[in-house]
Nucleic acid binder design. Structure first.
Lengths: 109, 109
DNA sequence: TAATTATATACGCATATATGTATATAAGCA
DNA sequence: TGCTTATATACATATATGCGTATATAATTA
């Protein structure tokens, strides 16, 4: 029973990794293939140090892997399942929005 | 482009909800049907106030719904998809463990 | 109404997380 | 070697999060 708690802690750690909008944007960028830090910095529109730090978090939790080619470091998703997880979060959010819209309509009509 | 960021913030908020071991335990308890705060307090083995606060977080993010029956408040999952999300997190964790085991074996042999 | 049970919230505190800025490391090239 | 580009990290700081404790609210019953 108590040993279970360690498992839930690991799962929570994993979820923490997804609990930041910029990291979710990075994951979304990597969805269709590897990207360099420079690529991601350009897309996210934040200082390069910010991107590097988020990538460090993703690396430390095993969400992404890296490959160096000369000066550039290419990041990619370590596991295709990660995309599925993001998709489900998206779906849950959509259903919440739909539900809220229903409530709003009932209140307004 | 910038409007996208708001969407990622919402998704991150949703992930934050899952980013705590006790909340994950609560969700797992609710997987097979509604439970009272008392039930959950007994399972989690923490002060009742702790459970109530976590339930408040889950409520505020639309993860659970409540139903009062007399003195008791029954909590249940608002969306069956939430279980799917937790299952995928579980799978990702398992694959990570498996990968680490492979690495460990290569190092030891 | 008073007492009891079940649940929710307020307050103070300790820890975690994200960021800006500056700097360090690493590879490639003149 | 010195310079430039690409990436990573250190430090200080602001904000967020979880918890223990105490207390508030709500429903039930005597």
């Amino acid at each position: 029973m108590n040993n279970d708690y360690e498992l839930y802690k690991l799962k929570a750690e994993l979820c923490k990794t997804f609990a930041d909008p910029k990291r979710l944007m990075i994951i979304n960028q990597l969805r269709h293939g590897e990207k360099t830090v420079g690529n991601l910095t350009q897309v996210l529109q934040v200082p390069q140090a910010v991107v590097s730090r988020h990538l460090a978090v993703l690396r430390s939790r095993g969400i992404v892997t890296t490959r160096r080619d000369g000066v550039n470091v290419y990041y990619s998703l370590a596991n295709p399942r990660i995309v599925d997880a993001c998709d489900i979060v998206h779906e849950i959010l959509l259903e919440q929005v739909a539900r809220n819209r229903d409530i709003a309509e009932k209140l307004l009509l």
